[in-house]
Design a protein around this nucleic acid. Sequence first.
DNA 1: ATCCAGACGTA
DNA 2: CGTACGTCTGGATG
Length: 883
Amino acid sequence: MTDSAKPTLMVVDGHSLAYRAFFALPVENFTTKDNQHTNAIYGFLSMLVNLIKAERPTHMAIAFDTSRHSFRTDEYPEYKATRSETPSEFKGQIPLLHDCLAAMSIPVLTKEGIEADDILATLSVQGSAQGYDVLLVSGDRDTIQLVNDEVTLLYPSVQGVSQLKRYDPVAVQERYGVRPEQYPDIAALVGETSDNLPGVPKVGEKTAVKWLTQFGSLDELLERAEEIKGVVGGNLREHMDDVRRNRKLNRLLIDVELPVGPADLAVAPIDAQAVRDIFARLEFRTLLPRVFEAVGATDEPVHDEPAVQVPVPVESAPAEFAAWLPAQTGELGLTLVTAGGRVTRIGVAGETELREGDWSDEMADALRAWLESDAGKVLNDAKKQVKALLRERIRLGGLRYDTLLAGWLMRPSFPDKTLAHLVDRYLGEKLPEADPSQLVPETDGATPAQEAWFTLRAAVALREAMPESVTAVLTDIELPALLVLADMEAAGVAVSHDVLSTFSGELLTRTDGLAAEAFALVGREFNLGSPKQLQEVLFEDLQLPKTRKTKTGYSTDAAVLADLQESHPHPFLALLLQHREATKLRQIIESLDSAIGKNGAIPDDHRIHTTYVQTGSQTGRLSSTDPNLQNIPVRTEESRRIRSAFEVGEGYETLLTADYSQIEMRIMAHLSGDAGLIEAFNSGEDLHRFVGARVFGVEPEEVTSAMRTKVKAMSYGLVYGLSAFGLSKQLRIEQAEAKKLMLEYFARFGAVRDYLRASVLQAKEDGYTETIFGRRRPFPDLSSPNRVLRENAERAALNAPIQGSAADIMKIALNRIHADLRKGGLGSRVLLQIHDELVVEIAPGEWDRVEQIVRTQMAGAADLSVPLDVQVGAGRDWNEAAH
DNA sequence: ATCCAGACGTA
DNA sequence: CGTACGTCTGGATG
């Protein structure tokens, strides 16, 4: 940091520094889950943050080359011609780096035909003329010529990108033995291999410096070249043209026409939300706080406007509170503070008047009528509060809006997680929050009624911003589903501890035995659960061939082990696979067992109460956590024993399971209008048999199980944007055969391909996909210049309307079933939703009526051009009911 | 304590 | 080089 009052202009050669970072940081450690490399971006930003912190520039810009072509290549086509092709892994990172810099409000400067260093040169001359201290950051030695009393160069040292050497005129003199402006003369004599500029043979830095000192200037030297004796003298005389050319090319332009000057480059506040978004996408976690720290912002929603005047709530006793409510017109914001699943405080907000008070039995009695009434209410993250009210035997009525759900529907890929974020984004205001790091907080957090007030106002802004079709999804699908999910979570599902622990005991005996056998085979004990130790055993002790590479070594996953077993059979492999399987089951059992009676269970209910995260997916599906009941094993006979622990609860008669068969394929038939596929579903024939017959040109009864497997994989793969490569991998067939299979398939079901293509194109045009019911998902990456990003987005965009429509249909069915059960005064209740399956607990004597309701509402949830087929089963436990 | 990678369960 | 999720473990980090 300088003591002077002079402003500091920092100009960075983005390309050269990002390129150094690209080679300096191991790509294995910098790859996102969708395979986007980020090492250059990370390294560059990391260094930039350090620079900003250390140098505190008042003005800043990053210059980039536009392409390899420049005025220098026009003059000398061989310029930089020996450089190897820029790796595409690097090029792909540049647009993303630009996005990061834009979010950080740092100007990026480029100019066609001009190299970044020329921009540095021009700005450095302008800057020093206009009274700035200039800091240049570049990995290109040509920039040394720009150094003077006002201009300092930071140059990456050999040790690494994070180490920058500071060159002022003295440092240049020390390092190179000449004044900065003479450096290009040396470079011209010595040549620059990396730029493909040959110099004088046998002349290095030492000789060049000696000559220049002796003759005073390059011109003088060339003039009097005859005076130099020996071989080098001859060389110099032979290569005078090369030297002149080099000197011409390494002279940086100081008069590039730029749209901005130093004064326009004043450091601006960063767009905190944009930075959070792009860093989330790049999976930069540790970098985020460093950025905020460096620019002096906090990692909290920021805004420029002064804090709004928040009305002061009136602390109200039950009777007074109850009397106030009916006098209010229009919707009210509502916030229930909960702790341990119980209501502790309530706040209600109109536009200007706010009321709140502690929860008590008296308060519950006083407010019950209003809470249960159809009077309009707006909440943020209502489900938890609805559940807490259920425990007070209050059923919330009049739920008109949930800002958290609305925020998710607006941006399903980056849902705002808290009211504070929503208030920041949609109101541009800051929700008062107590600083938890301070013993005596400077600022008080918002009270419940104040949160309700912000919620109410955020809802207004969200309604304004939300497209009509999305609003329909919110009011017709999501808000009713929220209430159903609250009931399902509160109900929980009965799980037998005895069944689980018996099974777990058996598995423990087995895993111990398998481990002992495995250790005997290997000759030592180790941790079978450690991929790292396992690699030592497989590839060193047992000398098995190396498998697919991962970030940290070689893969030991099940598919790889199965391949190994085929090519290099070894008894250890089978033991390992069995051990893995049994261990996995034990883990699942253990986590289920420990979840019994938790999360809002009433004492000794022996039930598991999962939490459905309504905003948990980008497509519209639910997710289930704590524990996840949507991934309970089903594929193997043995694993289904876990399902048999899910039992019908006391006071109920049986479990009913109902699932949609091939709902995604049916949606694809509907959306594509493919006549063959529609016929398949209307024919009543087994889908894969029907498709197999068409694809292979045989009668349905002649479709072999191998054929059926192939078309089945193909059909399902279609929904995910499968490639011939992926299909060949899954079916373990040649790529050529997979390609042929795809061609045959599309020859028969061409409208499917047409639809998939058109749907991605449409998404590219709109910037988002849409389900049958109007749920949207934005896909900005469909037009990304980065191939990895773009192709990933294309597959996701292909899948989103299909998976999303299926999710919509299930939610609609769920809502209607729930409504019918209540309307019919039935005691039966829906317990679980597993994407295309429902589990219902049937009260005594209600089977027939409930089965009728479930079948009707599931089949009738959408009017497609193919029927929605529903399979129903019954049993004392989940496994039995699934048959 | 917290984060990440690898592995694996579901639709 | 097939979409959408959550959870567990070991191992490295602070």
